[in-house]
């Protein structure tokens, strides 16, 4: 290939030719077979260099990550601190639980019958939907004879789901849309308002299972447990759903609120089996709590 051809090909492929030059160039491609073949090789050669550059860049990134992973394996000091902190927390929780068990039932606060409070899945504490002293909205479907009401375990463990992702959806906006208003009310713990605002959402939003998950949390918070259960059941059945696992946890809590000890235990047992599940420890803890009601 002549250097002048090389320059010509590059100018054409880089889009640096004038319209007149392009016409002449394309005519040459059409008329001159050798020129056309040479041009096709130039295209392949450019592609080869580009692919090679891409591979090189990916390798550099890969090597960096491997090196970082190796470094983490070699110096696990940070991880050990976390493990130790976790163990200490578990021991503390165990002693608190034992202490709570030894108290006579009449001394226990109305709702927080058990002192442990697990916040799996990144849930954050927010205002309690039912305040101490208020009657719980629904009657239990099952009553365990000779034991306190299992619904109190619900009250001790339920906080409507929150995550940084949801909080991050709120942006400073002078005129928030219906979705933002719904999320804002939800995050403020104003669940009746959130449910009202849910009705203003578009049909697409209303059928979005992630938004339905939030709605179900609001339903549970305001005591519309049956409606919440219906939604949680649907979401938790979708194994690949974003909040399938979370929905299962809240379904278990909803069953507790209904006083359905057997149904709740089945769910928490299943959650406890899931390896790497963020709910594994919390489910085990709640099952331990529920033993008191047997």
């Amino acid at each position: 290939m002549e250097p002048k051809d090389f320059d010509l090909f590059d100018r054409y492929l880089d889009g640096k030719m004038t319209a007149a030059e392009m016409r002449v160039f394309e005519q040459m491609l059409h008329d001159d077979k050798a020129f056309s073949e040479s041009f096709n090789f130039q295209k392949d050669a450019r592609l080869a260099a580009r692919l090679d550059g891409r591979e090189d860049l990916k390798n550099r990134l890969r090597q960096r990550n491997l090196a970082a992973q190796e470094k983490q394996k070699i110096s696990p000091g940070k991880n050990w601190i976390l493990v130790l902190a976790g163990l200490l927390l578990l021991v503390a929780l165990f002693f608190l639980w034992k202490k709570g068990q030894n108290k006579p039932a009449e001394d226990l606060p109305h709702q927080e019958i058990l002192p442990e409070k697990s916040t799996p899945g990144g849930q954050q504490k927010q205002s309690e939907p039912t305040t101490p002293g208020q009657p719980i909205a629904e009657k239990p479907t099952e009553k365990q004879p000779g034991s306190p009401d299992v619904r109190q375990v619900f009250a001790a463990n339920f906080d409507a789901f929150q995550s940084n992702e949801i909080s991050g959806m709120l942006r400073a906006d002078d005129s928030p849309d219906a979705f933002q208003q719904f999320v804002a009310a939800y995050l403020r713990g104003e669940h009746n308002e959130a449910l009202r605002l849910f009705e203003d959402l578009s049909a697409e939003d209303k059928s979005n299972e992630n938004i339905q998950f939030l709605k179900a949390n609001s339903l549970l918070a305001v005591g519309k447990t049956d409606a919440a259960i219906t939604v949680f059941e649907k979401i938790s059945a979708e194994r690949n759903g974003k909040y399938a696992l979370e929905a299962q946890w809240f379904l278990g809590l909803a069953k507790l609120k209904k006083g359905d000890l057997v149904g709740a235990e089945t769910i928490f047992r299943e959650l406890g089996k899931g390896k790497n599940s963020p709910y594994q420890a919390a489910a085990a803890l709640i099952l331990k709590q529920l033993k008191n009601f047997r």
Partner: peptide, 26 residues
């Protein structure tokens, strides 16, 4: 085709490889 082109790149000198990457990738 991808493999063939990458193999061809491996066969040229390191200097040429560097120059061609700089021109057509970077």
């Amino acid at each position: 085709k991808r493999k063939l082109l990458l193999s061809a790149m491996e066969k040229i000198s390191e200097k040429c490889r560097e120059l061609l990457r700089a021109r057509y990738f970077d």
